[in-house]
Design a protein around this nucleic acid. Sequence first.
DNA 1: CTGTTAGCGCATTCAT
DNA 2: ATGAATGCGCTAACAG
Lengths: 341, 341
Amino acid sequence: MNADSPAKPATLHDVAKAAGVSLITASRALSNPGIVSDKTIAKVQAAAEATGYIPNLLAGGLKSKRSLMVAGIVPSLSVLQFLPTVQTLTNELAAAGYQLILGQTQYDPAVEESVLNTMIGRQPDGIVITGLVRSQRARDRLRRSGIPVVETWDLTDQPIDMLVGFSHRKVGEAVGAYFMGKKWQHIGVASGDDLRARMRREGFLAALGREVPTALVPAPSSLERGRLALVELLASDPKLEAVCCSSDQLAHGVMVEAMARGMRVPGDLAVCGFGNADFGAHMLPSISTVHVDGPEIGRLAARLIVDRCRQAPISKRVIDVGFRMIERQSTAGIGTSSGRT
Amino acid sequence: MNADSPAKPATLHDVAKAAGVSLITASRALSNPGIVSDKTIAKVQAAAEATGYIPNLLAGGLKSKRSLMVAGIVPSLSVLQFLPTVQTLTNELAAAGYQLILGQTQYDPAVEESVLNTMIGRQPDGIVITGLVRSQRARDRLRRSGIPVVETWDLTDQPIDMLVGFSHRKVGEAVGAYFMGKKWQHIGVASGDDLRARMRREGFLAALGREVPTALVPAPSSLERGRLALVELLASDPKLEAVCCSSDQLAHGVMVEAMARGMRVPGDLAVCGFGNADFGAHMLPSISTVHVDGPEIGRLAARLIVDRCRQAPISKRVIDVGFRMIERQSTAGIGTSSGRT
DNA sequence: CTGTTAGCGCATTCAT
DNA sequence: ATGAATGCGCTAACAG
């Protein structure tokens, strides 16, 4: 059933010849059927089927200036935070005929710059980046490239081009205000050492009005890192009552370590996460957290890119999707029920 | 600092003109410096820098038949199982100058086929797929495309081209043998409804030598689905002693639901997962599981593609990376220590 | 509705 | 070591 044509794949030229029409008619029949007669469309489609024709999108893109690719750039795929965004982005783009090229920056500005350069070289129809681009050179280059750019998961009033995100500073302030309301005295922070986590921590401390012990953990955050963070925080303050974490994974680890030491959550130790990971709502105790609509960010980013490519008017270049604190058992009064929210 | 050239980006033509050399000399100076004099290299590099030149990889790929892109196809990014593989793959490929284009099949053969088609149209230098391609048409097409293909995370002696994976049947048998050794009588299975999880379940049942109650959960598996699965399994068999799960996420959920009902793990209920997710080793109790080296799969797949592209000889077209059962507290005798392994 | 002409930006022939 | 010509496969212009 195979060993058919080990040789060269069919080109549009072959299809046109097989269908007995000109090259351009074949092209139109396949990609712009509106302006071709039904009969020729049928002929061409049959010929395409028969020859096993697959359009060469590189050639098409070179000529038409539309590569139908969008670059998606994340710090690392192991930062689960961004996964729903990337997933939705990929799907929404696919639905519009675009494919995603993936890049990872490893939280390294130098890597980011080099990744962005090769990405630009691929002539993508859009670039979606998690976070703001830090390097000024890269920002200039992107702007001058003329490629639609969407920065995400952060907020500024001077984006390179477009933006879908929210204020990490405000997240921190909201959680800080919540902690203040609880009257906890012995507070700690377990935070990733990336820029956005630092911003949240700053907002948190601003709301508290004072410094508190902080365990800084390297990315990606994980349960294990959360356990180690609590060990560190308890060493700083044995009377620790509450911990604010920069991710639900860290919060989970803090909770496990607490229980391993016979501390009750939230009875002896309250714990709050960030990101509203899917497991948090169904654990025992369930994890208080900050909800961010990752899929919506991906959806909006995709729409901005697609609209821009279609020359459709963009209503807002900067979209703040906001966030929402979710109080669950890990910071609530009692922690005995089934864990369902 | 911006608003420099809103117009067209520099092409190699511009660089050559600025450097006072011919087009092709500029090309060689940048991509094949070995055969150009140092002086002209310096001139061209300076000109490239000055003009802000970024090579158009679409054009280069069209001519050279090397697009420097590799297609990576997963069922869904939300299946965390595959993430380490995709991440390593992306990084290893990037190190060799290749970029990954991402595709998701949603576990749908029809989607898979269409994704593969557009992928082929992008002329990737390789295609890496999680799982075996099911559709015969797609297999034929891939073979005839001449593009190096690596199927992963499964095993067959008739791959489309190359393969890096392991036998899910054998995984199931190994876990089944382990369960047999424990003499548990009341056994249940919580399994995703994808092909590979089904294969593991078949191997598991074969080792047990009998049927057992099974809760089938839709992908992606999650903690919540695990909780629901245990509810279902307990309804079938209230005396349930042990559950074999198709992922660590499900196992986690089963454990949470068990504890919510006052059952002890492993005292009243033993639980085993699959995949060795990072959280499993550090929970309380830690989760017994089957370890699969996801990063290694990605690394090997990348190497196969790169070697093939460099015309290097491929020693083995089918690589079985195997697996390893890891016994932790969730199926062990006692469950009281710190959770560290 | 269809066809002819031209060229996207680059790298592979050849030649010098 | 450098250059001139040619074409990868396709689509935007125009023409008919």
